[in-house]
C-alpha cells in the first residue's frame, strides 16, 4: 500500500505529549535522519486518542517503537535514549555499516 521506496515503516506509540514521548520522538527522528534518510516512514499514534489501536500491535508500554516493515516485527520500548540499542533493535546498523 505504501510506496515501495519506504524500506522502513516505523510506528511510534505514545500516550499524550509527555516528556518521555517527546524525547522518544526526537530521538527517533534523529536516528532516522542519520541512518535511513529517505527510506523511512514514521507514524505516530497517540493512544489517548486512539486507544483501540493498542491491541493490534500488542502495546503495553509507552513509548513503544514498532518496526512494521521489514519483517519480522520488532519493538523497542522506552524513550529511545540508548542509540546503540535502538539501532540493534531496528536492525539498522548491520545493514548500513558493515
Amino acid at each position: 500500500m505504501k510506496t515501495k521506496e519506504c524500506k522502513y515503516e516505523l510506528r511510534l506509540y505514545i500516550a499524550g505529549k509527555t516528556a518521555k514521548s517527546q524525547t522518544a520522538l526526537a530521538n527517533l527522528h534523529k536516528y532516522c535522519e542519520e541512518y535511513l534518510e529517505g527510506e523511512y516512514k514514521i507514524e505516530v499514534i497517540d493512544l489517548l486518542v486512539k486507544p483501540q489501536l493498542a491491541e493490534g500491535d500488542q502495546i503495553f508500554a509507552v513509548p513503544t517503537l514498532v518496526r512494521k516493515v521489514p519483517e519480522p516485527i520488532r519493538k523497542i520500548i522506552g524513550d529511545l535514549s540508548n542509540e546503540e540499542k535502538v539501532l540493534v533493535g531496528l536492525n539498522i546498523r548491520p545493514a548500513n555499516k558493515k
Binding site: 506509540y13 518521555k20 493498542a54 502495546i59 503495553f60 508500554a61 523497542i76 522506552g78
Partner: peptide, 18 residues
C-alpha cells in the same frame, strides 16, 4: 522481539484496559 531503552511506563496497558 522487545528491546528496552531508557524510560518508559505501562500506560499502554492502562489505556488498553481502560
Amino acid at each position: 522481539e522487545i528491546e528496552e531503552t531508557g524510560e518508559y511506563d505501562l500506560d499502554g496497558l492502562f489505556i488498553r484496559l481502560n
